[in-house]
Amino acid sequence: MDMDWKRNSQLLMIIFGIIGIMPLFFGSTNFIMHILIMCLIWSVVASCWDLIMGFAGIFSFGQVAFFVIGSYASAIISAKFSVPPIFAVILAGFVAGFLGVLVGLPCLKLKGAYIALVTFAVHMILEPVLKGDIGRAIGTGGSRGILTIAPMNILGYTFNSSDPVPYFYLMFFLAVASSFIILAVIKSHWGDAFLALKDSEQFATCLGVSAFKYKLIVFALTSFITGMIGGFYAHYVGMLSTRMLGIDLFVTLMVILVIGGVGKFPGAIVGSFITIALNEMLSPLGSYRPIILGAMVIVLVLLLPDGIVGLIQKIMPKKKSGKSLIA
């Protein structure tokens, strides 16, 4: 919260500038390009989680659920209604955003751990719903999942997993747009309202800040973006299963936030590239990987409570200004 809009924007441009030229060096190596695409995907999902938890102070554990909802929604909309994948991805964002509002409504009168319990319950309920009769009726494929999903297609050009560079730049565009939207929200009066409600909801309400309005806004916005990225993921990987709702992804996203710094945007973007690369290095360890990542969360919380970006902000000289700064 020591960096103003200009410095945050410059930092984002530097980060994305470096990321954007990586295909020049690794474009012929599909494995590395796949890792870079996954880094971009999880950077947006983690940034949305950081917005709702780190800035708005709402301890929501439903981010993975909205990602999965968006994934399945895009795949089903594309297959059942013959909607082009690029439009199915956008519609999936609206589906996830609508469900995000529905989940947010009962959370309006709750605080802290109770919101975490409600949103985590959504996460837990989603798997049996997708596997059960309701899921099979709408086209989730039940316990088998969806095995064939149409690849992305834009203006007659069909993306191919054997050439991941076009997928990379499409995801790169989505990541840049999502990140600057999140930054704009943080720096707007919405961001001020989120922080006011986080610090003291009762005092903020006395000043005229509507907890009802802003909590629904943050639930809807983060769910929409997360669902849209989930839709992209579905068309990129070409298949879906409820294994995404396992502990691995949840722990990975938590490690991303801890490494980058909770409430230290764009820490989630930095954390995603470090975490995903580390996750790939630990893949030979199989089932021990989530255990090691979980242990890392504990160690990092103790050693770097504000994450890497928080550490950088402490080292960098603070800009003296009388203006209230958000990030």
Rank of each mutant, 00 (worst) to 15 (best):
L207F: 04
L197H: 14
I229G: 11
I229L: 12
I229S: 15
K187W: 10
V209K: 13
V176K: 04
W190P: 00
A211W: 03
A193D: 01
T222L: 01
G208Q: 15
H235K: 10
C206T: 11
F219H: 04
G230W: 11
A204R: 12
V185N: 10
L240K: 13
D192W: 11
I217R: 08
I217C: 00
T226R: 12
D199P: 01
I225S: 13
V185D: 02
L195R: 06
M228Q: 12
L197Q: 02
A211T: 01
G238A: 06
M239Q: 07
K213T: 03
C206F: 09
C206I: 03
S223R: 09
Y214D: 00
Y233T: 06
F203A: 09
W190T: 04
C206P: 04
A193V: 04
F224H: 12
Y233P: 00
D199L: 09
G230Q: 13
Q202S: 11
F224S: 12
Q202P: 11
V176I: 03
G227Q: 13
S210R: 05
V176F: 08
F194A: 08
S200W: 14
M239A: 05
H189N: 08
Y233V: 13
I225W: 07
L197D: 01
Y236I: 07
A234G: 13
L183Q: 15
A193M: 03
F180L: 01
F224M: 13
S223E: 00
A184E: 03
I229Q: 08
S188T: 14
G230E: 06
T205P: 00
F219C: 02
H189M: 12
I181N: 02
S223F: 08
I182Q: 07
G227A: 13
I217V: 10
S223M: 00
V209Q: 13
F203M: 13
S179H: 14
I186M: 04
T242C: 13
L195S: 13
A177R: 07
G238Q: 01
S178H: 09
I181P: 00
V237K: 12
L221H: 03
A204P: 01
F180Y: 09
S200I: 05
Q202K: 15
S223A: 15
A196M: 07
A204M: 05
V185M: 00
